[in-house]
Structure formats: structure tokens, C-alpha cells
């Protein structure tokens, strides 16, 4: 049964009966791993592998529901992907909700439902959680924090990167940033751009097997440009990207041109940048292309020791800098 009409009350965060109700009627209804069920203060988890990756992230996206996902799906993908690009197999997740008084429980159910679906797709169990309720107008509906634990399968490090390596992207860039911009209805534009929000576990794990794999990162806030600028900053190596090889959806490019955005700076929530030896790059791209999420995978550039910083060779053959930047016009995209 759906909880229509009911709304979040302050008491739902009290830790008492109402909290218990909410846990049972909403959270456990969809999230019911063995580890979560005892509802103890801490979950016992079983990590086979001693080498463990752990990451945490908070989600405050506005609007909460957008084409291609919602804050719930995002809160799973974001954390799962941080683990996956670290060479880990995501295993366990904790989830914390901050709910605004008055938030419709029906919408919360929709969010929890997609959390359940997405975590299944990603192969992770949600093993512990927390809920707090704040007074009306003290938050924007729902904020979520997730912490993820994964088994390290392929330890990766920026130190592995060397001149001559290839830069690979697993698909089209800028979809999430554009979808959020449009979903805010601040611009008079209608276009069927859907967020790429997706767990990357399945797509990426086969790549762990390839020897030439050096390093990965998911280009979320600040986009591809920011990741590459950071890479160059830390390693002292140069990065060159070829604009003509970077996959961008036509509508994303069109909208970016109109709004003055650059897809290279726009957020992605279901893409990875992979740095790999030049010999292994083609193999990796062909592995990625076998998965639906990787059908637009491409080699987009390379690492060089001949210059520093990250730069783009444009379609007309010009050069420009790629820098670290959050697209300043779009706060709260994840």
C-alpha cells in the first residue's frame, strides 16, 4: 500500500514510534538486506578481502526528481561509482536521510524505491541507515548521505600514469548537467536530455582485468575538464584532448552553445575517465562498447611529458586550456 497524503512530521525523526513506523513502512519495505534487518546501531558486515575501499558523499540535488533519475538513484550511483573507479567492487552502503517536515511520504517512497532498484543493479547491499527530520524550510525536501565500502580488486594510483598513456571516456559527456539545468525550468528550452545517472559497476569491472589500466575517475561536478586539470596538476604531466573525438550528444551541444556552457565542464553521473597504456586502450574501449552504458566509449586524448597542464585541441586546430571549475551557473547538481 502506498502512503498517499501522509507527510513527514518532526516526530518521524524522534527515534520513537513514528521513526520506527517510517522505517518499517517506507525503508524496510524496499530495502531489506540481511544486514539491515536486525536494525541494530551498527551492521556486521563480512569483508572477504582485507583491502577495503571506503568513500562517502552527500547529495543535495535540486530538483529532487529529474529526467533520468532522482536524488535517491543519484545517492547510490555517486557513491558506488566512486568505489568502482577506485578499482573496487562496491559491496556495502550506509544511507542517511535528512528530511524536511511536511515532505510527502509518497515522494519519499518513490525515492526509496529507486534506491532499492539502483542498489540491486549496482550489486551493493544497504546495511545501515539513519533518518533525521528538520523543521519546515530548514532543508529542501530531502538530503541524503551515503557511505560505501568495497573490496579492492585493482589498486589504482595517479602514480601509475606516464607519458604516452591514452585517455578514454566511457560515453557522451555533459548529460547530467544539461538535464538538471533543463529540469530547473529556468530556461525556456524543451529537449529530451536525460541524466546519465547510472551505477558503473558492471561496465567497469571487466576493465579491472586489463593490465594496462592505470587510473580512473568519474567526472561529476566540474566535468571532464576538472578531472584532467587535477590529474595534470598532481602528476606534473600534460594532458591533451581532441575535441573532435569527445562524444557529446547533439542536443547537449546545442543547448550548451545556447547557454554558453561547455560540455567539458558539465557534470556526469554515469561516466568514467580511464587512463590506460596506449597498447591496452583499444582493448579497453572494445570491452566498454560491449556494455550498453559504454557504447559511445572513445579514446579522446593522451598524456604527455612535453608540456604541463591540460589542454584541448579544438576542431579548428586551435588550443585552449582545460581548468578546474565547477560550472558556476549550476549549483547543487548532485
Amino acid at each position: 500500500m502506498r502512503n498517499s497524503n501522509s507527510k513527514i512530521e518532526i516526530g518521524h525523526g524522534s527515534g520513537g514510534k513514528l521513526t520506527r513506523d517510517l522505517i518499517e513502512k517506507v525503508f524496510l519495505k524496499y530495502l531489506n538486506s540481511e544486514e539491515l534487518k536486525p536494525l541494530e546501531d551498527a551492521a556486521y558486515i563480512n569483508l572477504k578481502n582485507q583491502h577495503t575501499a571506503i568513500t562517502t558523499d552527500s547529495y543535495v540535488v535540486r530538483p529532487l526528481f529529474f529526467p533520468g533519475g532522482n536524488i535517491g538513484k543519484l545517492s547510490i550511483c555517486g557513491t558506488v561509482n566512486d568505489l568502482a573507479v577506485s578499482g573496487a567492487k562496491p559491496r556495502y552502503l550506509s544511507i542517511g536521510f535528512i528530511l524536511e517536515e511536511g515532505f510527502p511520504i509518497e515522494s519519499l517512497e518513490d525515492i526509496v524505491k529507486s534506491i532499492s532498484e539502483t542498489s540491486k543493479n549496482a550489486g551493493v547491499s544497504i546495511v545501515t541507515g539513519d533518518t533525521k527530520v528538520v523543521e519546515k524550510n530548514k532543508c529542501d525536501g530531502v538530503y541524503i548521505n551515503t557511505t560505501g565500502v568495497g573490496e579492492i580488486i585493482k589498486p589504482l594510483s595517479l602514480n601509475n600514469i606516464s607519458a604516452g598513456d591514452a585517455v578514454i571516456i566511457t560515453g557522451t559527456i555533459g548529460d547530467h548537467g544539461t538535464a538538471i539545468a533543463l529540469a530547473r525550468n529556468e530556461f525556456d528550452i524543451k529537449a529530451p536530455v536525460v541524466s546519465d545517472c547510472a551505477p558503473l559497476t558492471d561496465l567497469i569491472m571487466p576493465v579491472f582485468e586489463i593490465d594496462g589500466l592505470k587510473w580512473m575517475r568519474d567526472p561529476t561536478r566540474g566535468g571532464v575538464s576538472t578531472v584532467l586539470a587535477e590529474l595534470s596538476d598532481i602528476t606534473g604531466l600534460g594532458v591533451e584532448i581532441f575535441e573532435a573525438q569527445v562524444p557529446v550528444r547533439d542536443d547537449v551541444r546545442f543547448i550548451s552553445d545556447m547557454l554558453g556552457y561547455d560540455p567539458l565542464y558539465l557534470a556526469n553521473e554515469g561516466k568514467a575517465i580511464i587512463i590506460a597504456s596506449s597498447e591496452s586502450a583499444d582493448t579497453i574501449v572494445s570491452i566498454l562498447k560491449k556494455h550498453p552504458l559504454g557504447k559511445n566509449a572513445a579514446i579522446i586524448g593522451n598524456i604527455s611529458s612535453e608540456f604541463r597542464r591540460a589542454r584541448l585541441k579544438t576542431t579548428i586546430g586551435g588550443e585552449r586550456l582545460l581548468d578546474m571549475l565547477e560550472e558556476d551557473m549550476l549549483p547543487r547538481i548532485c
Partner: peptide, 14 residues
């Protein structure tokens, strides 16, 4: 918008 195109295409470098 012209400056945008000029800068983003790296035209000055050419």
C-alpha cells in the same frame, strides 16, 4: 558570443 567562440575554439593560438 564572438569572444566566446574565439576563446573556446583556441582561435588566437592559430
Amino acid at each position: 558570443s564572438h569572444e566566446h567562440t574565439i576563446a573556446f575554439s583556441g582561435m588566437r593560438s592559430l
